[in-house]
C-alpha cells in the first residue's frame, strides 16, 4: 500500500507541522503534540480538551476553534495520547473556569485521560470528563469494554463547545456533553480494510464481494461479514441499528460520515438513502451533515450517527463555530 508519507515514524509529527503551516489560528506544539486555539485561555470560559489516536482526521485537531474545542491531543496512529499531552493542554486552556475532557470510550483513551485528569487536578485545574460511547455495534455488557466512541464525538464537541462559548459553567457544559452522548447512536460499515503506516498492509482481508458491518474507526473488523449490498440496503441496516437502539421520539441531527476513502459523490447518494430510511421510520431530520469527519485512515465505508435534539441542543448545533473542519455562523 502506497502512502503519501516520509517514514511511518514521523507521520504524526509531519501532519502537525502541516497543520501549523495551514492554520495560523491554531498554536501547534509539534514536539509535545498539543493543538491549542490561538488566544486560549479565554477569560471565564470553560476549556474543552479532547484527543485520541491519530488517523481519524479532521477529528480532533480540525475541531479546535471558536465554539468547539480549545485544545486537541493527537496520539500516534490509532493509539491514544499520553497523559502528559492532556495535562499540558489543560494547563494551556484553563482560565480558572475548569476544563472538560471529551474522551472516546476505548480502554487506552480512558486510562490515559484518567491519569491526566488526576495529574491536572494536582496542578490545580478543575477537570470534568465525559465519556463518548455511541457505537451500537458493540454489545454493551459485562463481556466487552463497552460501546466505542465514534461519530457522536463530533456532536459532543460541537454542542458542549457551543455551551462553553455561551459562557456556561463547567458542570453545565459537562451536563450538555453527557446529554448529547446519551441522545446519540452510531453504526459503521466498512467496504475495505485499513492500512496503517506502521503495518503497511491491510489490517484484515475483505474480499471483493463482501462488507463488514459494525466496524469501529480503528481498522478492527466488525461484528459480522455479509455479502455486498446496495447503498439503499446498507442504509436500512444502519438506520435500523441506530433507530432501534435510540428509539427517538423527536427530531434528530444526522451525521452521514465517510470513513476516509469513499468518494463524496457516494456519500451524498448514501445520504439520500439514509433520509429515505429515516423518513420511512418516521424519524424527522432537523439537520444533516455529510462528509469525512470521523475517519479511519484510508478505509472505504461510512457510518451514521443520529442525535435526538430538543430546542436547546438544536440551538447549540446552529450556534457559530469556526474551526478548520467545521465552520458556520461566524
Amino acid at each position: 500500500m502506497k502512502m503519501l508519507i516520509n517514514v511511518a515514524e514521523t507521520v504524526v509529527a509531519d501532519a502537525l507541522r502541516g497543520m501549523a503551516a495551514a492554520h495560523p489560528e491554531l498554536t501547534v506544539d509539534v514536539e509535545r503534540r498539543v493543538i491549542v486555539r490561538r488566544g486560549a485561555p479565554y477569560e471565564g470560559k470553560v476549556g474543552l480538551v479532547s484527543g485520541g489516536g491519530s488517523g481519524h482526521e479532521p477529528l480532533h485537531g480540525g475541531f479546535v476553534g471558536r465554539g468547539m474545542l480549545d485544545a486537541a491531543c493527537p496520539g500516534e496512529v490509532f493509539t491514544s495520547p499520553v497523559p502528559d499531552q492532556m495535562v499540558r493542554a489543560a494547563a494551556a486552556v484553563d482560565s480558572g473556569a475548569g476544563v472538560l475532557f471529551v474522551v472516546k470510550n476505548y480502554t487506552g483513551d480512558v486510562l490515559n485521560f484518567d491519569m491526566a485528569a488526576e495529574l491536572a487536578e494536582d496542578e490545580g485545574v478543575q477537570v470534568a470528563k465525559v465519556l463518548v460511547n455511541d457505537d451500537v455495534a458493540v454489545v454493551d455488557s459485562l463481556y466487552t469494554a463497552g460501546r466505542r466512541g465514534t461519530g457522536a464525538t463530533l456532536f459532543v464537541e460541537k454542542l458542549a463547545g457551543a455551551a462553553a462559548d455561551a459562557g456556561a459553567p463547567l458542570d453545565r457544559v459537562a451536563a450538555v456533553a453527557r446529554r448529547v452522548n446519551e441522545s446519540s447512536r452510531s453504526f459503521g460499515v466498512a467496504l475495505s480494510a485499513v492500512t496503517t503506516p506502521a503495518k503497511g498492509t491491510p489490517t484484515f482481508d475483505l474480499p471483493a464481494g463482501e462488507l463488514e458491518l459494525g466496524i469501529g474507526i480503528h481498522g478492527e473488523p466488525g461484528r459480522e461479514r455479509r455479502a455486498m449490498m446496495t447503498s439503499g440496503e446498507i442504509a436500512d441496516v444502519v438506520v435500523d441499528a441506530v433507530v432501534e437502539d435510540l428509539r427517538p421520539d423527536g427530531p434528530v441531527i444526522v451525521l452521514v460520515n465517510g470513513m476516509g476513502a469513499t468518494p463524496l459523490l457516494e456519500l451524498y447518494g448514501f445520504n439520500a438513502e439514509v433520509h429515505r430510511a429515516l423518513t420511512e421510520r418516521k424519524v424527522p431530520v432537523a439537520r444533516t451533515l455529510v462528509g469525512n469527519y470521523v475517519t479511519s485512515l484510508d478505509m472505504a465505508g461510512c457510518s451514521v450517527t443520529i442525535c435526538q435534539v430538543d430546542e436547546e441542543l438544536l440551538g447549540l448545533w446552529d450556534a457559530p463555530v469556526s474551526t478548520p473542519a467545521l465552520r458556520w455562523g461566524c
Binding site: 489516536g53 496520539g75 491514544s80 499520553v82 497523559p83 487506552g108 486510562l111 491519569m115
Partner: peptide, 12 residues
C-alpha cells in the same frame, strides 16, 4: 512507558 506509549498498553 506512561509518557510515551499511549493506548491501553502504555498505562497498563
Amino acid at each position: 512507558l506512561i509518557s510515551t506509549v499511549g493506548g491501553a498498553s502504555g498505562p497498563l
